[in-house]
Amino acid sequence: MTVAILLRRLQGRPSTASEDEALGRCERAALVTGQALAAARNTDAIAIAVGPSRREDRVLAMALRAGCARAVRISDDGLDELDYLGLATVLAAAIRKVDATCVICGDRAEEEGTGAIGPAVAELLDAAHLTGVIAVTMDKPDKTSRKGTLTAVRQADGTVGEFRVELPAVLCVRPSALSGRLGDDEPARPAKGTGIESFGLADLGIDLRALGHRRGAAGRLRPVRGPRRTTMAASAADLVGRLRADHLVATAPDPASGDDP
């Protein structure tokens, strides 16, 4: 079993790397979870990112320092214009190429937060998927499943559920106390990989023209002009008065009425 970890550099503005942090929280949890899973099974973890080297190499270098055996960057013209399904098509091809059966990715990115890539990749790979995962363990080999299974803990709506997931699978991970921590630039483990491999679309057998219908399908991105108008209150009493006037806060009961508050 090879573990693929899908990473993406946090972006402060569209197509521009964030100057503050390299990875969003979910991607960070994916890196920690995927690497731990690979280490527990004594197998390889391969980090995969889509985008130009100036943006994505920092996170791939982090992945190598975290113990990933390989780091793969997919870069080509026009990739940033693809919608979720176009990107998922590229990632699915890369996952097939590295022959990974367990895919770990972040539950959602912080800039746009659509959470669509993992389920879409699973659909294209015809793999099982589960979102909202906060912990994963590999099950012992079982006669009932020749492909192998994972146990995933999913947190949603204030509840926690445990699921058995058959491989191949895509697990979309979100941060939790269970997913551990990873320093941004500090090496967590000795690097196993030697460098970042670069794939183009041709290496994956993809013709960008075939994805033409996925360009622009994500909609248009427009900068927001002008801040929203905020009513600044002069005091706590002023604020409560305004909230009551707008019926957002109830008026306190009249003590003379004898009603309980």
């Binding site: 979720y84 399904l85 746009e112 937060g113 659509t114 669509a116 890539i117 979102t131 709506d157």
Partner: peptide, 23 residues
């Protein structure tokens, strides 16, 4: 936009070849 939708909607979109918008 519930946790259930987070699991179901994007995969349904991918299966249908649909455009997808979240939240």
């Amino acid at each position: 936009a519930t946790p259930a939708a987070g699991d179901i909607a994007p995969r349904l979109a991918a299966r249908l070849g649909a455009a997808f918008a979240a939240h």
